[in-house]
Structures are given as structure tokens and as C-alpha cells.
Design a binder for these strands. Structure first.
Lengths: 227, 227, 227, 227
DNA sequence: GATGAATGAGCCTTCATTCAT
DNA sequence: AATGAATGAAGGCTCATTCAT
């Protein structure tokens, strides 16, 4: 199936394809679809501009492929989380996993924000296919137990959004924040602190998750920095 | 008086200049500097493409003018806040003012995020000139009184960033959030809820502000939605 | 008559018209008709670009006016020479007059060469109306008495051309010659030497002119530099 | 070998490059750098306007290439002349060669004159690199033996210039001369007569060259036209 | 008599794309 | 599997010109 789908165009080399996708991700994540020149991508990928068209029929097809490759892994993380038990430990792991993925694909958040800002044509597809599970998870959690007394059910969406801001927004705003605070938010310690803030808010807003003893190996380091 | 100021370049009509700036703001806020075509701006402003060059010597000069017009009012808000007393009432008013300004300039946040994402050449200027006062305010508040026990001083930047995410990020991510929750985050009620969330977090994190009796006429409506 | 012709367009100020013509002459003489921008002319004339169109209906009309103003005085010089006696004295005076006029209109030669090089549409007009008298004079002189034994009648045109090269060409090639010899051919001494060369060749080629005693007040200074 | 040399820029085909250079030479020689439209060149070369930019990065780079291709062969002629004996025979050959080259590159003189007239940025480069050898030759000849009694050393530059006028000026002024004398100065006979004039003046001004018996096969035809 | 404001056409250049090799 | 060579369309910007004031 996949073979038949991929081999639309004649000849492909996996290593070249990957180089192209990598280069395109970086470029699209900075300038968006319309602001990116295909020659930039070709040069960064160290292939001839024509070669690129043996792999993708157009610039926007390449753009779609980049989005797909970047965002779809997130869905898997959510599916795994959804199918298991929900406590502070698994939640911590989920936060770790998401932040780890964003760290490995440092351009993903920017792609998403650019699509949102430009109200691009992939936006609704992205929302339905990839973010729906994430927000459904959060909304489900919220319904399980109200956290703070001054947050009623109408606030659920903004709370869900809060966590998107804190994860994806962290990466998009990183360059500005770096200018402001003189410290790279995408450095190891910067990410650790952001995770700590997220978990701190999770604990406040989803108190029922924290009933059992707290754990979470990966995030222990981050916790250490708290007072 | 006005003559001397205006005669920097060629012929100018105030009404036309404003039409151009308005159109440019919308366009740049969607696609960024490089993704926007000059002709789009001209058409939206209903002027000839050449006319535009009687007002601004280049596309990027127009871009800079748009940024300046949009972001500089924010500085004033911050300056006023800085020069007065700091309690929950004035803070509530500040949040109201900022959100009101962002509402009136619905493209401002997106301009900022695009600059950050693209690591544009105006980024550092923006950071130093416009956002420095905002973050300085927040950091000052944090130093006045530590809020929660699990937030130490190293966390200050991420907390300051949190409030930037909740204000500016709210507007940038609005299109995606609208797709996800089926409700426009930029509608009156959407903004009200976001303000409520912000103030709720302010109260948690800056408890010393809430010593006196709470007030804030403008935000009373939003408060009503809380449980 | 002249009034009716000139007042085609409404209102004119002589001083402004002159400023425009002067500026246009300089500009056209450097870049030619197509290479010159009307704004350059307007700026150099210190008038608004629109004002220019109150005086001349188009750039090429202005170009024609510049050519006319520059070249027509030459015809008068020739007519005066033609109507008097021809000896070395009057010839010397003619050479002095022509070089003096070219010196006062330092752009005239370049205009002519540009028209020739570009095979412009004014070329044949220029040839017939302005240069015909000059060459007719020279050819007439040559027929009066053959100079050197190795120059037959078929050589007459190239000899006539020789004197055009030495006068007009001197001004057109001046920038290159200045680079080569480090001395401005358009300086007083440079022009004097050129006149000396011309007269020296005149004497060789038109020996019958020099029968009487040589004189010529204006050119005495140049003669002094000869050995 | 050729690969390494050619691969300076993008894709190149030798035949196309030549077509572009030829077309550009014609165009630039008529209107100069600023007066020439890129599209004219492209159309004359029968290539797409974009193709031109695969060969030269800008209009002025193309202009420089045209100048270089045209003028540099002249230097070789001069170098060969400089390295051999100097008598009337070799001098006649040099004149023949120069005029033959100018005849084959009928636009070269005009390019040079346009550069001089416009005081273009390549002018000093042209002077130093290409014309310096020519004038040095002539000046050297002049110092070898003074020719006429009324020409002292201060006149050397104008005499050197005389021969530039007679060669390069002949081609630049040709259109005007054709209008005036009804005979094309660039026709075979026209060029022959011009060569004859040049050699006649050479003989007068450099008498020491003509010590031996005159010869020069190539120029015999021209000599026949003399009386 | 002069100019501020505007504009359509055109300029140089770059873009995304194609196709034979 | 990759690329050299080419191109139509479009991009930002400038041009000559107009016209109401």
C-alpha cells in the first residue's frame, strides 16, 4: 500500500528524501509556505533544484509532507496516553514525551503557529486530525474533577488552550524570550523549567491526578530546581 | 508645524497613508514580511501599487512602520502602570487595557509571533524597546513576594513568559483554537474568559497584590462567569 | 510669430525655462535620451517634476529643444564665415569661435555624438540643417587648392571628418583622455593645444589660405606654446 | 578543465552565451548601459529574459563582459607591436590590424565613446588596462624623433589623441558622416580611405619611421587611391 | 506659475516549474 | 537518481505623465 502510494514519481532515494524534508522543515518553519523559496530548500538539502521535483510535485506538496511528518507522531503519544491509566505519573510522562518530541523537532511548533496565524488551508485538517485527541484528553480530565473553585465548566477550553500555549507556544516564542531574558528557552535547563511550570499548573488544576505518590523519573531533574 | 514633519518624503495624504497602513497590517499579520505581496496590500488599500512608494520607500520600511504603529501603544500602557501603585485593582485594569488594545489591533499579536518565529531583524528591537518594560514589571512583581512554595527564583522568566503566552499567544493561536472548540476565542466572551484565567493565575502567583478588597469595574463581567 | 509658437502651453517663466534647459542639457549629454530620468532633470533644475510638463509636453520634446538650443548657434558662425573672405586670419577666428562655443556648451559635442552613436531620429535633421554648412565650407576650401600631393579628391570627406573629430571628438573623448594623460583636455591649456593642432593641420592641408601674413589675436596665446 | 572554469555560476551553454553577448554588444553600443532594456537584448538573442540571468547576474555584469570581450583583443595587438621592430611596415600592419578589429567589432568604438561620454564606472579601468599601452606606444614614437618644427613636447598628448579620434572616432561618428557625405564610412572603401589618412599623417608626424623603403601588403590597396 | 498626489506601463530581477539527458 | 538549461509568470520598484488645485 505504502509503496504504491509513494512511488507515484519514478525514482527515489530515501536518504535524499530525508535531506529534502529536513531542509524544508527548517525553511518552512521560519518563513512559512509563501515566504520560503524552493531554491533555499534545495541548497540546504544540497540537491539540485530540479531533483526536488522528482520527490514532490510542488512546493505546497512538500509543505504538506513536512507538516505530516512532524505532527503525526504527536497523535501516537496521545493515543498511548489515552489507552492507559491517568495519574500524575503517566501525565508527567506524557508531558515529558511531548516536550521531548518538540525538542527533537524544534520547528514543529513554529509550523503549527504559522499555519494558525496564516489561517492556512491545512489548519482545519491539523486541528481535526492531530489536536482533537489532545484537547479531548484535557477536557476529559477537567470534567473528572473540578480543580479550583473559581473555574467553572465554561473555562475548560481556555484551560486546555493554556497547556497548548505552554508547550507549543514556548517553542514559537523562544527567539523573543531569548532576547528578553538572555537565556535560551530551548536549552536543556530552559525546557526543564517549562516542564516544571506545566506540571505545577497541572497539579493545581487537576488535583485528583495527584492522589497517589508523585513519581516520574524523567522529570525528577526538573523538580529538583524547585524551592 | 505639520508640514515640516510630513515633508520627509514626497507627496502624502493622511487618509491614504492610513489606508495603506491598515491594509499592510492585515496582510503582514497573515503572511509576514516575505510572504506578503506588495500588490495585495495596494489592492486592499485601494491604491495603485506605485502610490504606496510615495509613502514608504520599500516594503520593509512599510513593515517597520506597521510594527511601530501597532506595538508602541503597548509601551504607554506599561509606563502608566509602572508609575502608579500596584494592587489587584490596577493590575486588573492593566490586563483589561492590554487585552482591549490587542482586541482593537487584532493583528498585532500575530505580527509579533511572526517576527519571533522568523527571527526577523526587528525582533531584538521589539524586545528591547517594547517588551522589556512589560517583563521588567512582571519580574519586579515576582521579586516582591514569592507566590507558591514550589516556584523559586529561577522560574521567574517562565512565569513572565506565561503571561505573554496567555495574552499574545491567545490571539495568535485563536484560529486553531476556534477550529478545535468551535467557539471564537476573539469573541467578547472568549476574551472575557481569557482575562479571567489570567487574573486567576495572577492572584495565585502574586498573592501580595490581592491584600486589599478586590475591585475592577471593567472586568466584573468576566468575573461573573466564575463559579 | 515666435510668441504664438511658444505660448502653446499656458504659463511660462523664462528663468525657469532656462533652468530646465540647462539641467536637461547636462543630463542628456551624459546618458542620452533614453538613459536620462526626468526626475533627475527636475531635481537638477530645482523644480517640481510636474512643472517641467508646463514647459514641454514630453521628455523627447525637451530633448529636441536642448539639441536645438545647442546646435543652432554653430550655424550662425558658419554663415558669417561663409559670407566673408577666406584667409588664415578668418579661418583662425572661425576655429577660435567654434572651440569657444563648444567650451561654453561643454555638453554639445556629447549630445551630437550620442545622437550619432544611437542613430537617433534627430540625426538626419542635425546633419542636414546644422552640419551641412560646415562640411560644405571645408569641401569648398579643399577644392580651391589641393594641399598635399598624396591626397586626391576622393579623400575630401575623410579630411572634412578629420576636423570634426578634432573639434567635437575632442570634447566627447575628453573624459577618457583625461584618465589617460592626467590632464584635463577641457582646461584652458588643453583647448589651446587642440586649437594649435587644428590650425597646424589646416595650414598643411589648405596652403593657399596662408599666402598672406598670419594674424589672429584670439589665438596668439595658443601659438606661443609652439616650438 | 573547462568544467572548472565554467562552473562559476549556474547552467551555461556556450552557444547561448555567445548569442547573448552578441546581442548585448549591439544594444549597449547604441544606447549605453542605462539606455538599454534587458528585454531588448533577450529578444535579439532569442532567449527568454530569465535565461539571461543564468549567465550573468545583472545587466551591468553583462555590460562589463561585453566591454571585456571587445576591448581586450586590442591589447594583444599592441603588445605584439611593442615587442617587435618599429618601422613603417610594422606600423602600417598595426593600423591595418586595429582597423580590421574595429571593423569586425563595429560596436566597439561606440561602446568606448559611450563610456567616455557618460563618464561611466568602467572608464578608468578601460583607460588603464586597455588604452595605456596604445598611448604609451604613440608617445614613445613621438619622443624618438620630433616631426614638425611647430610641434613641441607639450603637444604629444593631443597628437596621440588625434590617432584615437581617427580610429575610434571614425566608427562612432560614422552614422553622422554617412548622412553628411552620402557614403558609408564603414564600407570597404571608406575604411581604406581612413587608413590612408591615418598613414599619411603618421608619415608626416613620425618621419623617422619612413627611413627604409615603404612596404605593407595589406595596405597596398588603400595606397592605390592616393594621387 | 507651480506643485502635491496619483497612476499605468514598464523595468530589472527572481520564482517555481519543466524536460531532455 | 540527478541535473543542466530554459522559461512564463510574477515580484518589488521606478518611470513618465496627468490633473486638480
Amino acid at each position: 500500500m505504502a509503496d504504491a502510494k509513494e512511488k507515484t514519481k519514478a525514482s527515489r532515494s530515501e536518504v535524499t528524501e530525508r535531506r529534502i524534508l529536513d531542509a524544508a522543515e527548517v525553511a518552512f518553519a521560519r518563513r512559512g509556505l509563501e515566504g520560503t523559496r524552493v531554491r533555499e530548500i534545495a541548497e540546504a538539502a544540497e540537491v539540485n533544484g530540479s531533483t526536488l521535483y522528482n520527490y514532490y510535485p510542488s512546493k505546497s506538496a512538500l509543505y504538506a509532507a513536512v507538516l505530516d511528518r512532524g505532527v503525526s507522531p504527536l497523535t501516537k503519544l496521545l493515543e498511548e496516553y489515552a489507552s492507559g491509566p491517568h495519574d500524575m505519573e503517566t501525565t508527567t510522562k506524557l508531558v515529558d514525551s511531548i516536550m521531548a518530541h518538540l525538542n527533537e523537532c524544534p520547528h514543529l511548533s513554529r509550523l503549527i503557529y504559522l499555519e494558525s496565524i496564516a489561517e492556512g488551508e491545512y489548519l482545519s485538517h491539523m486541528a481535526e486530525k492531530w489536536f482533537r485527541p489532545l484537547t479531548d484528553q484535557i477536557l476529559g480530565q477537567l470534567r473528572t474533577g473540578l480543580s479550583t473553585e473559581d473555574l467553572n465548566e465554561g473555562m475548560f477550553p481556555v484551560i486546555a488552550a493554556l497547556f497548548m500555549h505552554l508547550s507549543f507556544g514556548h517553542y514559537s516564542l523562544a527567539p523573543l524570550l531569548k532576547e528578553l531574558f538572555g537565556h535560551d528557552p530551548l536549552s536543556e535547563s530552559g525546557v526543564a523549567k517549562q516542564k516544571q511550570l506545566i506540571l505545577s499548573l497541572v497539579r493545581q488544576m487537576f488535583p485528583h491526578l495527584a492522589s497517589g505518590p508523585r513519581s516520574g523519573a524523567d522529570s525528577s531533574e526538573a523538580e529538583d530546581t524547585s524551592a
